[in-house]
Design a protein around this nucleic acid. Structure first.
Length: 580
RNA sequence: GCCAACGUAGCUCAGAGGCAGAGCAGCUGUUUCGUAAACAGCAGGCCGUGGGUUCGAUUCCCACCGUUGGCUCCA
């Protein structure tokens, strides 16, 4: 362990990982002399090194590399720092075309430095641990193709991922966390809990919601609708396809065509599946002459859109081709922008915290180089976003130039139960569409003005949000959205009718209760309900029938004890109402 | 799209150039049971799709489709 200097843990890990990457590159170049080096940085959870090789590495190669790395670590070579002038550096790396490329991009006023351990010297800004012996625990994880500089026009390199920690225990803990993440994978839980499926026959990225998954989604949507109506939104339904002229006006055919499904031609007219809802909401706006008194108008819809995503990126519920956005468009006057943004943020945090997401990361993205809309519009919009965020005393970071070409935006990332970050909420100004569609309202001055348009999705897309929710809760949904809230478990057949009475009573009070009257032992039924992560199990046998009670068990394996049906009912209803 | 691995029963997975296998789930019985799997029997298959090699291919080769892990982290 490094002790002389009091490194902060993240810094220490960075050094360990970066050093492990060097050791790996050392071993790889020994084993595969023709391998050319690219880069090998530490990452958030580990490290990688990219190599240019003619033949990809195999799993067996990884095991061998790992073995030899251990030997290098044992030999405890010192990491030696070295400075070079440009010519020396070029000469030193004459055999490494990718390194040469990097050296040539280093500004002339910067030093060119290397780190050397044993016979392996690598162009590197450092820093490293003192010697290879100070890499206490590491593991190689997987191989993957990666483009040189992440650019698909560049050659594909082979990347080896690994991770390293300051102690065996910390490494072990990390591997357990990876395993936990795998166990919570929404695709696995989706199957186990019978929530949804995806089929080769129906098409990749297209979800079939099974009754239980549909139940959860329906409850989330119902909650979403209620909260939106409470927040002054009006909800609409719009079609799934639209004529080509609509998408010409909106600019989608010009700018978004590669994500759109091909046209369907009927009656000599081209129709397209909608990739976005905005043109329809705008069309609604235009159905009437709008006065300044009508604004703000908040038009919302759980709108299902279809987008072509490249084969390699489609994944479970997280990246799909048919998705339902929790979409809304706000049309407002310039003087209303701030309060509207505030309202959107209030609603966002209310919704997200209802699902147990309490940690947020907020990004304000400003005007990019290529953009539409006048400078003063950008100014006003960006300022109002900034002012709104400032006035809320929320922390946020600014992504300069990261806005959409049609307006600035605020993005919200959430942290789930495993501490993983997900980008979900987006609030975007749009200077483009009001122009293209010629949106207007009549002002107090009886002159015609153009409204501001804000596009926002709070949960993002229902499919993706459900995927995140499944992993966040690990499939153990809180009672208010659990597809089955209560399982009634009679011990023997003679208890079925009492079980049925209890079930009906609960169902009649709006509780999703189910009777398990299968010809199975109680233990089997309990196990089944545990696996299905049903919040409550009610065991009924001779004692309960006799005293008109229930033996209540929760899925967290707590024995809650014996309650009357009424007691249990009010307890569960209270829990449902408080959404816990 | 690109790199790699994978695709066998509803699910999880084993197998091998020569008759296709297990566990769970399903069905039929038996059992009536007190907090995480009762017992027995039965049924279940175009071995992803198409082509090639071979006397013979689910197995070997090629293509396609699909799934999984990657493709921002700048020496």
């Amino acid at each position: 362990m490094v002790t002389e200097e009091n490194f902060d843990l993240t810094e220490l890990r960075k050094r360990i990982r970066h050093s492990a990457a060097h050791v790996m590159a050392d071993v790889v170049t020994q084993m595969f002399p023709e391998a050319k080096l690219a880069i090998g940085p530490p990452t958030q959870d580990g490290f990688y090194y990219d190599f240019m090789v003619s033949k990809p590495f195999s799993e067996q190669d990884l095991a061998k590399i790992e073995k030899r790395m251990k030997k290098v670590i044992q030999r405890n070579h010192t990491f030696e720092y070295q400075e070079y002038d440009r010519d020396e550096a070029l000469k030193l790396n004459s055999d490494e075309p990718l390194k040469l490329e990097i050296i040539n991009e280093i500004p002339s006023n910067e030093k060119i430095t290397t780190y050397k351990h044993g016979t392996f010297e690598d162009l590197c800004a450092g820093p490293h641990v003192k010697s290879t012996g100070e890499i206490p625990a590491f593991k190689l994880l997987n191989v993957a193709g990666a483009y040189w500089r992440g650019d698909e026009t560049q050659p594909m390199l082979q990347r080896i991922y690994g991770t390293a920690f300051e102690s065996r225990d910390a490494l072990e803990e990390h591997l357990v966390r990876l395993e936990e993440a795998r166990r919570r994978d929404h695709r696995i839980l989706g199957k186990e809990l019978d929530l949804f499926s995806i089929h080769q026959e129906t098409g990749p990225g297209l979800i079939i919601w099974h009754p239980k998954g549909a139940k959860i989604r329906g409850l989330v949507e119902e909650f979403w609708k209620n909260e939106h109506e409470n927040a002054g939104y009006e909800l609409v339904y719009t079609p799934h396809i639209g004529k080509s002229t609509l998408w010409e006006t909106s600019g989608h055919l010009e700018f978004y065509a590669e994500n759109m499904y091909a046209a369907m031609n009927m009656d000599g007219q081209d129709y397209y599946l909608k990739p976005m809802n905005c043109p329809f909401h705008i069309t609604y706006y235009k159905t009437s002459l709008r006065s300044y008194r009508d604004l703000p108008m908040r038009i919302g819809e759980l709108g299902t859109v279809y987008r072509y995503e490249r084969g390699g990126v489609v994944q479970g519920l997280l990246r799909v081709r048919g998705l339902t956005q929790d979409d809304a468009h706000i049309f407002c006057r310039p003087d209303q922008v701030e309060s509207e943004i505030n309202g959107v943020l209030d609603l966002t945090f209310h919704l997200l915290s209802s699902f147990g997401f309490k940690e947020y990361e907020i990004m304000l993205a400003t005007k990019p180089e290529k953009s539409v809309g006048s400078d003063d519009k950008w100014q006003l919009a960006t300022d109002s976003l900034r002012r709104t965020l400032d006035s809320r005393n929320t922390e946020y970071s600014v992504d300069e130039g990261g806005g959409a070409f049609y307006g600035p935006k605020i993005d919200v990332h959430i942290k789930d139960a495993l501490g993983r970050k997900w980008q979900i909420t987006t609030v975007q100004f749009d200077f483009n569409l009001p122009d293209r569609f010629g949106l207007t309202y009549v002002g107090e001055d009886s002159a015609v003005h153009q409204p501001y348009m804000i596009h926002r999705a709070l949960l993002g897309a229902m499919e993706r949000f459900m995927g995140i929710l499944i992993e966040h809760y690990g499939g153990a949904f809180p009672t208010w959205i659990a597809p089955v809230q209560v399982k009634v478990i009679p011990i023997a057949e003679r208890h079925n009718s009492y079980g049925q009475q209890v079930t009906s009573l609960l169902v009649n009070s709006g509780i999703r209760a189910d009777l398990d009257d299968r010809n199975e032992r109680m233990n089997f039924k309990i196990r089944d309900s545990q696996i299905q992560k049903v919040p409550y199990m009610l065991v009924v046998g001779d004692k309960e029938v006799e005293t008109s009670t229930l033996a209540v068990r929760s899925r967290s394996a707590e024995d809650i004890g014996v309650l009357t049906t009424e007691e249990f009912k009010s307890r569960v209803l209270a829990e449902i109402n408080s959404r816990i």
